[in-house]
Write a protein that binds this DNA or RNA. Structure first.
Length: 416
DNA sequence: TCTGGGGTCCTAGGACCC
DNA sequence: TCTGGGGTCCTAGGACCC
């Protein structure tokens, strides 16, 4: 049996750990730049705030109902996520961390008392981390996902014990709620009258193979209770790394674009070094504000294969600026830029180049020192000059909570 | 005024190899 | 007059996930 553990309204729950006064009140967390709603408390759902809704469209409701609004604080969420996962690992040896707020557990060995087990885990995670979770248990991952949704509608635990349970559950599951069936496939399936997970499980293999390929067949099997997606406990290193942001303020200024793009390139370098990878390919893109129909629209990207795979910030910045120069056009006002590195390989096996003039060894040492300083004294304490000191393009984060668990200066204060 | 960010996997088709 | 067969690798695009 698999269990899917999912943190309830995770980002909101993280904020509430340190603001218990917000329990039972409507709370939302916004995306970067304070743009859209990406996490909602139950109270916020009830008053009609929708997922992914731009907050500025709901300012009236937010004010009237006293909704508490937070900018996203990924430092805090990442740390609390780690605590939840560690807690789960302490009660189960087979844990696959699936996302920041979800984990699959393999339950071989706890078959007899599933409900008691789940009840205790739920209670324990809450006590150890402050985060409420829901647990769905079923013979396959796809069914455990659905069971988890069912759990959220009830008391937080749902177990698929037999075929009758499973049948009943998938008959009551809308097709678009099935893991692996997204918007495009839902549209197609609804068109041919497939409304529920059960309808899907009755489709012909030949049809599934032609329209949804292997994915479709796998989902069908999993819905029938035949496990096709094993638990994967190894965290694979990333195959691509991206740093992309919408700017707090739109800009035409090449100087500001250079600051932003070089900062994103440096960030990619940090991420690469952290997982001990080097990148072979780099892409830079810039684009205008797609929501403003008055602006002339422009959307351009360019890639380069690096002469030698690298994770050195200075070198990545150099190529990023080269690419930026090629795609920058003075005629437009830019809203967003990004740097993506791909073709990653481990830094140990990196192929060198006979004609490489870059002082790779020296820069490697320098990177280690810079990373160390920034870790101890705060991000970007030491950076490359071109990254600039301005704030013009930086994120808007007006409702940011403190980094209670990772920064001594922001630790929770208790007045007695 | 204001609309996120970061990933994965699969497949088809073209380039290329012997 | 007549011009094969069997592969691999890479990339772009489209689907999906949180």
């Amino acid at each position: 049996m698999f269990a899917l553990v999912d943190c309830n309204n995770f980002y909101v729950s993280c904020e509430r750990v340190f603001r218990p006064d917000l329990n039972n009140k409507p709370v939302v967390v916004l995306s970067n730049n304070d743009g859209c709603i990406i996490s909602r408390s139950e109270e916020a759902k009830v008053i009609g705030l929708k997922m992914a809704e731009p907050i500025f469209q709901r300012t009236k409701l937010v004010k009237e109902r006293g909704v508490h609004v937070f900018s996203s604080n990924y430092t805090l969420y990442g740390d609390l996520s780690q605590r939840v996962m560690e807690t789960l690992k302490s009660v189960c040896t087979h844990v696959e961390i699936y996302s920041i707020d979800e984990a699959f557990l393999s339950l071989t060995g706890v078959e007899d008392n599933l409900f008691d087990w789940a009840y205790n885990v739920k209670k324990y995670v809450r006590r150890a981390t402050g985060i409420p979770i829901s647990i769905g248990i079923a013979p396959t991952k796809t069914l455990a996902k659905i069971a988890n949704k069912a759990a959220k509608q009830g008391n937080g635990i749902f177990i698929v014990r037999n075929d009758r349970h499973r049948d009943c559950m998938i008959r009551n599951t809308a097709i678009e709620k099935v893991w692996g069936v997204g918007r495009q496939y839902s549209k197609l399936l609804l068109r041919i009258g497939v409304k529920t997970a059960y309808d899907f499980s009755q489709l012909q293999d030949t049809w599934l193979r032609s329209k949804m390929k292997m994915m479709g067949l796998r989902i069908k099997k999993e819905l029938h209770g035949e496990s096709c997606i094993p638990l994967d406990m190894i965290i694979p290193s990333k195959k691509a790394i991206a740093t992309t942001r919408a700017f707090g303020k739109k800009t035409k200024d090449i100087k500001l674009l250079k600051e932003a793009v070089s900062t994103y390139a440096a960030r990619c370098g940090e991420k690469l070094r952290k997982q001990k990878s080097v990148a072979n390919l780099m892409t830079v893109f810039i684009h205008t504000d797609p929501f403003n129909s008055n602006d002339l629209q422009y959307n351009k990207s360019k890639s380069i294969t690096l002469p030698v795979a690298s994770n050195c910030s200075q070198e990545l910045i150099r190529y990023a600026l080269l690419l930026l120069d090629e795609i920058y056009d003075t005629a437009y006002i830019y809203k967003k830029a990004g740097v993506i590195v791909e073709g990653l390989e481990t830094q140990e096996v990196c192929q060198s180049n006979l004609f490489d003039k870059f002082a790779r060894i020296r820069y490697k040492k320098l990177s280690i020192i810079i990373d160390g300083l920034n870790k101890n004294f705060g991000r970007d304490k030491v950076k490359i000059a071109i990254q600039g000191t301005g704030k013009e393009w930086k994120l808007r984060q007006e409702k940011l909570s403190k980094r209670y668990t990772t920064n001594w200066n922001e630790i929770l204060e208790v007045k007695v």
